Each structure stands twice: as structure tokens, then as C-alpha cells.
Simulated assay, not measured.
Amino acid sequence: MPIKPLLSAIIDWLRAGYPDGVPESDYIPLLALLRRRLSDEEVREIAAELAATGDLPADKVDIQVMITKVTNEMPSKSDVERVRHKLEAHAWPGSPATDDGHPDPGDSPPNP
């Protein structure tokens, strides 16, 4: 089943922010950021696609464990901010700029 255009755009954005793949230390904060805008099922789909292509070195069980950790225990604010800053340079296409003139990575991508 092909991935939805919205999720494909998110995957492209993540690959731009993590051209060498997502390091293990960023799995949980990254999923926490995604869960602010996406359903658990959409997060699972994105994680599965990244895992299938090697951008997220994890398997289906690892992904489920990561999502459970995010659901039950949010990562530290500093971890989330580290990941947010990593991705700031690759904001959602067409997202509005923040007051400081930089795109806001917390904005959701445009509807396909």
C-alpha cells in the first residue's frame, strides 16, 4: 500500500534533516515531535517507512516500543529541543516564518 502524500512529505523532510539516518539518541524525541501533529498510526507508518529504507535502524518491534515510550513517558525538554533545532533548517514546505524570520518546525506540513 503506497504511503499517503502528507506522510511522504514528512519523510522527505526528515531525510533532509537527517541525511545520514536518525541516530538512536534522537528516536524518542523525534517521535514525540511527530506525535504533536500526527496520529499514532501515522507515526507508525512514517517509522516503518524509515526503517524499511534504513533511515531509522529499527524493526517493527523497536518502533512499537519507541511509540509506547513516547506515549507513557515523554523525553526530556532538552532532547526534544535538540531534535527540533536539528530539523529547523528543513522546515515544512510553505510553512510560515516565526517572529525571528525563521520557519517554525512545529508547523504542520501543507495539506496535499
Rank of each mutant, 00 (worst) to 15 (best):
D55P: 06
M74N: 07
V65L: 11
M74T: 07
L56M: 13
N72L: 09
P5C: 05
R36N: 03
T98V: 13
E45W: 05
G21Q: 05
A89D: 09
G106V: 05
P105V: 08
K4I: 04
E41V: 08
S78D: 06
L14Y: 01
R35G: 00
L34N: 06
I63D: 12
D62A: 11
L30F: 10
P112E: 07
R15G: 05
L50P: 08
V83P: 10
L31G: 02
M66V: 06
V22S: 02
K4H: 07
L38M: 00
A47Y: 06
L31S: 03
G101V: 12
P112V: 09
E41F: 08
E49G: 00
P96F: 05
Q64D: 10
G17D: 05
P29T: 03
H90R: 10
D62F: 04
S8W: 00
L31D: 01
R84W: 10
D62E: 09
D104A: 01
L56I: 06
M1E: 06
P57F: 14
P93A: 15
K86Y: 02
V61D: 10
G54W: 12
P23N: 04
P105Y: 01
D20T: 15
R37E: 07
P110W: 10
S8H: 03
E24D: 07
N72S: 13
A16F: 13
D59L: 07
G54F: 14
T53D: 10
H85A: 12
V43M: 04
I11H: 03
E73R: 09
A16R: 14
D20P: 02
T68C: 09
E41Y: 11
V70R: 00
V22T: 08
E73M: 07
H102K: 15
A89K: 14
G21E: 10
P96M: 04
K77P: 03
V80S: 01
E88F: 10
S108H: 11
T98W: 12
P112R: 13
I10T: 03
T98D: 15
D107Y: 14
D107P: 12
P75C: 05
K86D: 12
G94C: 02
L30D: 09
P57A: 15
A91K: 01
D55M: 08
K60V: 07
K69N: 07
I63P: 05
R84T: 13
A9F: 00
L7S: 00
A91V: 12
I10C: 01
I46N: 02
E81D: 13
S95N: 04
G54T: 11
I28K: 12
E24G: 02
P112L: 11
K60R: 11
N111E: 15
A47D: 08
W13T: 15
D40T: 00
S76T: 14
D55T: 03
I63C: 13
P57V: 12
A97R: 12
A51I: 06
R84F: 14
Q64M: 08
G17Q: 15
E45S: 06
H85P: 02
H85F: 06
D59T: 01
L6T: 11
L30H: 02
P105L: 02
L31R: 01
K60D: 04
R36C: 00
I46Q: 00
R44M: 09
R15T: 06
A97I: 08
E49D: 05
A89C: 13
G94K: 04
E49H: 06
S25I: 09
D100G: 12
P29H: 05
P19S: 11
D40V: 01
A97P: 11
D104K: 06
W13N: 15
L14P: 00
V83T: 10
E24H: 03
R84Q: 06
E88L: 14
